[in-house]
Design a protein around this nucleic acid. Structure first.
Lengths: 214, 214, 214, 214
DNA sequence: CATGAATGAGGTTTCATTCAT
DNA sequence: AATGAATGAAACCTCATTCAT
């Protein structure tokens, strides 16, 4: 049928992984049949075993491969600059927005969230290679802002979670709710709005404005 | 065998649902065997069918039942008051934190995220009964803050996502990453820190502070 | 709902059997759920066990009870008369037609046909109590006709099968094909037509008419 | 384990159907376990699903496949000849006898009788493809006999049922009662005897013989 | 490299049957 | 006499995985 199917064996693993990502993230790992992955990749079920030892290996590879892939730019951004922190934060959020809006990252996130508890090693891998690394870098950034007097003396650890939260929300929106009919979300605009609020909210004011009691 | 066989028929459905929630959210819906749900509920596999027509019905009921359960307080909070918005926002976040820290809500969230694409009706149910309702209420609150001059003229729709994001993160942390070894997160503290930043970041300043360029 | 359900315990076994006959013959023994029999009889599933030891006992009782029930008139008819055989044959067929057209006999027949191989004892019971007894009586009748010179010297054993065949067909038609949309069959007319042909076909002619070669 | 695993894939469906026919007709459709069909066909349970989508498909195929298979010769016989009808009738009965005595037809018949009510589409298929077609052909034959003056003016519709009845009986005897111990029946002899009686009984006599009153 | 054929293990679901009330 | 609750056993069907070609 497809006369040229037998020609690019080198691309096979990637084709298989792409098919797997799509199906795993739309139907769940356990509910996806290897046969469907094969069909989507244009192969027979058995051929997958030429490239991967078993089903779980697909999932593992998918996570390993993308884990941290998006983080290098983040770390570079954070480290490379020693000027004011606010523009870096803004850029960081803009970068996240791009990845979320136009890479398969949201599907990966959804997959990790779904499977982490059933496959703890995978979750731990992600925790280590992505979450820790990413939050560390950002925490350093926030701390630098505080140290330089640009930011108020907030709790940097918690603040990182405040920064990331809306981006996680955007990812889940795109990976989960948009596909089932949720209204599209303008992720770049969200990132910009969020950056705005954050920077304003973290900035050290000349005279600390009085705040209302909780 | 079971010493209390035939004892509490009225409580059975709830017992089954509790068992199901725990297992579904830890192993995934599809990977959970009904037999394990039964065992955890202290019943035989077949007994579940006396209360639910099939496995999916468990999932559906779980979502239907909790959908919106947490929202009434939110709506009351938002509507009941006509004073300044900031303290309400703070209270709201404190309320979310409590639900996330000490109710099964995070497991539900994780479950919905995991299964929404495979079972779109369930995802849509959640979208409608929880997401829309919750965000509407909060958007009204933000808009009230803007209208009264308490807040800057931000995009209320996007701002709601900024408010919720970190709480979503907290839920996923507790529901997914803590169980596999992630360091515990002080959710109440996170909510307080987030409220702090938000309120500061949204407040209208007498003379709008000049902001740096992107 | 039925306020007087608890009043006639004596009739219970019969009610249960009637429900069973209807369901067994329409869905098959194995495919009929005892719960449905119970529901049709206006009882709970468990109550059936107060009257019958198990499911097979229902089937057995159903067959035992009706087995031979229709045969006494046949035997009486055959034995009681010593005149010409033809009118008896005609009456016999008329009697069969009546039973087939307006008693549950066809359903019983269908049930026996369906279950005989899976439950050989039941089939054997029927063979003995109904088939043998009925055919013996009829064979005697045919033989009397031959002996008296009224009938040609045909094979009495086979002739009995020729006599019964169309009645079996009528029973299956009513019990199987009419319920699924087959055109109704006028069983009494069939019996009359068949009697006609048979009597004419069996009669001894003064000079045996020459017959064509096969 | 199986020495000839993977050897005759083309014959598989037929092998499976043969096994199914034997078991379905001896134990009933519902009481037959697919695993036993598989074992009899020399396959594993799962392998059946490579050839048939589900259990019912086996039954359907069995009936579809044989439906009408025996009727072409009948129609040819009926149409091909324009001479006297009696010899054709005799041949027809002889043909039926052969099919009943030495093809799986009786098992099919039994199966249809058993399952028609539970699976009405199957019963209707048989009604249409076999019963209607067969009886139409034969009715035409009888009518031709009447029209030519060879037969008395009987009711052709009913007469067809008289003709077929004993053959149905023979089929049920072979398919149901012989297997459980009923004495063997010489079906060819029965067909001959029946032909004899029929032809004699239908023949138009020069001077209509006086008949006894009912 | 690729696959069609096959299967073992396992999951969901059904149901005859039991038992405490 | 009657039933609601419960269960063990088994049936259908699925699927990851293997292997001969």
């Amino acid at each position: 049928m497809m006369p040229d199917r037998r020609r690019r064996p080198k691309a096979r693993p990637q084709e298989i992984l792409a098919a797997a990502l799509e199906l795993f993230s739309s139907q769940g790992f356990s509910a996806t049949r290897l046969e469907d992955v094969a069909a989507k990749a244009g192969l027979s079920k058995a051929a997958i075993y030429l490239y991967f030892p078993d089903k779980m290996a697909l999932l593992r590879k998918l996570i390993e491969e993308t884990a941290g892939e998006n983080l290098e730019p983040v770390e570079i951004l954070v480290r490379s600059d020693t000027g004011p922190v606010a523009p870096i934060l803004r850029q960081l959020l803009r970068y996240f927005a791009t990845r979320i809006a136009s890479s398969p990252l949201p599907y990966l996130m959804k997959l990790v969230i779904s499977e982490a508890r059933a496959q703890p090693e995978l979750g731990q891998l992600y925790l280590e290679k992505v979450v820790s690394r990413g939050t560390s870098a950002m925490q350093a950034l926030i701390e630098r802002g505080i140290a330089s007097g640009e930011f108020r003396p907030v709790d940097a650890f918690l603040t990182v979670r405040c920064v990331i939260g809306p981006m996680l929300l955007a990812g889940i929106w795109r990976g989960v709710f948009e596909p089932i009919g949720g209204e599209p979300l303008d992720i770049e605009a969200l990132a910009a709005q969020h950056a705005d609020i954050l920077i304003e909210g973290l900035r050290a004011h000349a005279p600390a404005s009085p705040r209302e009691a909780a």
